[in-house]
Amino acid sequence: MSEKLYMLITFTGVVFLILCLTVFVYTMIILYRRRQAEFEKEELRIRMEVQERTAEQISQELHDNVGHEITLARLQLKTLEPLLDQQAAVIAGQIAVSLTKTFDSIRDLSKSLSEGVINTDGLNVAIRNQLDRLKTSRKYEIRYDVYGTYHYMDEKTEIILYRIFQEAINNIVRHAQARVITVILECSPRSFALNIADDGDGFILTPKDTVQHSGKMFGGLATMRERASLIKGEFEIETQTGKGTKIKVTIPLSNTVGYDN
């Protein structure tokens, strides 16, 4: 065997081994990442399902027990009214008004927690109802529009979109100091987009989807993004301090039921 051949065998052998090792390590890392992403998605789906179930139970409890107790208290007040003197009757009337307001708030909360409104009326109506309730506060100018023909989507997709919408509205009400809230549903045969915009304070968006607002950090955006990823949606956000916030969730429409609203 010649000197060159000996060198060639050793060199080729070592290079081949290094190459095989590199390919192996990269393959393992890529496969792991793919598997991990699947796992995370599954975990997220389970977490969302548990959240939905818990919300449904709380909603049921509020509606059945707390609501029932308030109704009973109102009835008892009504029975009490003729027995009271004028001053006490006025106070009893005020208590009754207060109980009615509490009852309405609980009913609204119960509705917003429940999936029922989605199951019966669909996302379009659920969003409109929620915005109507917000309009009654007279704090906001609400603009709501649907571009194109709205198609019902499957129940899970609609619930997830509704939860994203609720989270966004909740953020606006709690932090944005906005005056105008604009919600637009863009419907096309191939995709559906939910747009929520406000003219509030805006905020500084950090790379990890946490939000710096008035010196505090908030993490609701990550939840919205996670929820959107569950339905293969694209989550976009545009914001600037003092110039409001725009959120857009776009999903492909392969899973629509296919009848119009």
């Binding site: 065997m1 000996y6 065998i9 050793t10 052998g13 070592v14 081994l17 290094i18 090792l21």
Partner: peptide, 19 residues
């Protein structure tokens, strides 16, 4: 009697140990 080939393979194994 291919001792050198054996040596080559053995040195590859040693390089594998280094890796």
């Amino acid at each position: 009697r291919r001792q050198l080939l054996g040596d080559a393979v053995y040195s590859i194994q040693k390089f594998a140990l280094v890796i």
